[in-house]
């Protein structure tokens, strides 16, 4: 464990907590893409199956349980408890165009052809594009609440910090995973447009407006 990876995981956890608090306190999921949250739940489910038969550390196990519980909790809030506030008209990104290529790519490019490895690889590929429905929804609605932009900033920062973690581990000649690194770079690049707007607008108190 290094400071970059710890900050990355905490940023990820912060993002999930910000989202849960936003939905719970405002009793509304307006502006939030249920499709992205659905993809995140798939990502965690496919990746954390090893939860039940490999123990790496207490931290690792606890965080996996927290991420699984909070992602399904978010789905519950969005699709059941506060379903009436879910903006399905603007949450229209075709997620099959994300899931199917991720499955195909995981079957073609992976470290070893086993079920657990294919599922892990699929979750890595899917995670790199899972935010697209949310970014698409923000561009369609033309703006986002500031709390949603804080959520996106924390979520985007998590994988950016992981890139620093991989650089750090490379200098320590620790073992690395090329698939996770390439997908992590793609994932972070998708946020660049948003990062620019967040740093130049939201932090100056303006509303976040993505060019439609």
């Amino acid at each position: 464990m290094n400071i970059f990876r710890l900050l990355g995981d905490l940023s990820h956890l912060l993002a999930i907590i910000i989202l849960l608090l936003k939905i719970w306190n405002s009793r509304s999921c307006a502006g939030i893409s249920g499709r992205s949250q659905f993809l995140f739940a798939i990502v965690f489910t496919a990746r954390y199956l090893d939860l039940f038969f490999t123990f790496i550390s207490l931290y690792n196990t606890v965080m996996k349980i927290v991420f699984l519980a909070t992602s399904y909790g978010t789905l519950y809030l969005m699709y059941i408890k506060f379903k009436a506030t879910y903006d399905s008209n603007h949450d229209t990104f075709r997620i099959e165009f994300l899931i199917l290529p991720a499955i195909a790519l995981a079957l073609l490019i992976n470290e070893e052809f086993t079920v657990i490895e294919i599922l892990w690889t699929f979750s890595i590929y899917l995670e790199s594009v899972a935010i697209l429905p949310q970014l698409f929804m923000v561009s369609k609605t033309g703006e986002a609440e500031s709390i949603t932009s804080h959520y996106l900033f924390a979520l985007g920062s998590y994988r950016a910090l992981y890139i620093l973690n991989w650089i750090y581990r490379w200098f320590l000649t620790e073992k690395l995973n090329a698939i996770a690194i390439v997908a992590g770079i793609v994932q972070t690049i998708l946020y660049c447009d948003f990062f620019y707007l967040y740093l130049t607008k939201v932090l100056k108190g303006k509303k976040l407006q993505l060019p439609a």
Binding site: R5, S57, M63, F67, W170, K175, L176, N177
Partner: peptide, 10 residues
């Protein structure tokens, strides 16, 4: 090698 796989990350 450096790209041997270790799944200790979340």
């Amino acid at each position: 090698g450096v790209f041997d796989v270790v799944k200790d990350e979340l």
